[in-house]
């Protein structure tokens, strides 16, 4: 089990060694989340690295990553636990055939650990050899209020009650990370139990660092041009501006095409990795691509 970082600086450098480059703000919040044992609530546009930090934290600490992807109508049987009904039926038939008639014995056999199916939340509460796991509750804004209220209970005490089995309590609380794309406002009561951080698009230097760490095969000139072009795009009025995840994908595409520098033709061919709405793609088509590329290159030249 890897040691927990003892300072903010150590936190940032260890995360960087896992390939996750973050600013001092996110570093501070993550350090606090570990130190105070509080859930971390990350909000921000899609593709700014909210999910990635959970993965980086898990590898960094050598813990297991348990992921709960949220969707509307998420309920207890897919988030917490379920029973293996087919197995239970077989057990009943066997009991019948064997002429077993003790109700109590059958009851405790049917609802025993053998037939329990653990879902992410229950798994996160149980003890792990490597230490408490990292629990990632992804895109919480996709669920509905009843599930939020249910989560409230788990996040405050880290214990749940299974009617057939009794109470399950975490000996050591897991490291919890919640993410939201802000497609709706998550209730204050839930946010209040967490440390809140708004993850913004990184600045030029940090995004370049991220690209260097994630796409080491890309030539330095190409990386710089990619970041400059993406930053120029973010200044435009798009339905969905490209996130960091898109810049990384795009850089990988360009590397696969053996590109060493950007050209308008190359951009037109690969823009699908960057912009995902037809209207947005139409906006940068043709002469506009050249204009934005020139603007990005001029920006690069000015920065030196």
């Amino acid at each position: 089990m890897a040691e927990r970082p003892t300072s903010i600086d150590e936190m940032i450098s260890t995360l960087a060694s896992e390939g996750y480059v973050c600013g001092r703000d996110l570093g501070t919040v993550s350090y606090l989340a570990l130190d105070l044992g509080m859930p971390l609530f990350l909000e921000g546009e899609a593709g700014v690295g909210k999910t990635e930090i959970a993965k980086a934290l898990a590898t960094m600490l050598g813990r297991r990553l348990i992921r709960l992807q949220c969707f509307e109508g998420l309920d207890v049987s897919s988030a917490l636990y379920d029973w293996n009904f087919a197995g239970q039926m077989i057990a009943i038939r066997t009991a019948e055939a064997a002429g077993q008639s003790d109700r109590g014995a059958l009851q405790s056999e049917l609802f025993s650990d053998d037939f329990l199916i653990r879902r992410p939340l229950l798994e996160a509460l149980e003890p792990h050899d490597a230490g408490p796991p990292v629990l990632l509750i992804d895109e919480i804004d996709r669920t509905d209020e009843p599930f939020e209220a249910f989560l409230l209970e788990i996040l405050s005490d880290f214990q749940v009650t299974i009617p057939e089995l009794g109470e399950v309590k975490a000996q050591e609380p897991p490291i919890v990370i919640l993410t939201s794309n802000r497609t709706r406002e998550v209730h204050d009561a839930l946010k209040r139990r967490c440390l809140y951080h708004w993850v913004d698009y990184p600045d030029f230097d940090r995004e370049l660092e991220i690209l260097r760490a994630r796409v080491p095969a890309a030539a330095e000139r190409l990386s710089k041009e990619v970041v400059a072009f993406v930053h120029a795009l973010r200044g435009q009025d798009f339905f969905k501006s490209p996130g960091v995840a898109e810049s990384i994908d795009w850089a990988r595409c360009l590397v696969a095409l053996d590109a060493v520098a950007l050209s308008p033709e190359l951009i037109t061919d690969t823009v699908g990795a960057l912009l995902k709405y037809q209207d947005d793609i139409a906006k940068v088509a043709g002469a506009e691509t050249t204009r934005i590329l020139d603007q990005a290159k001029a920006e690069l030249a000015r920065a030196g």
Binding site: I8, R24, D25, T28, V29, L32, D35, K191, Y196
Partner: peptide
Amino acid sequence: RAVSTVGFSNRLDFYHILRATLIRRV
């Protein structure tokens, strides 16, 4: 609690700590 665990190392950290703990809305 957060400030006392980290200590007053520098102003920027102090800013981030208070922001992470006191603010809940963008």
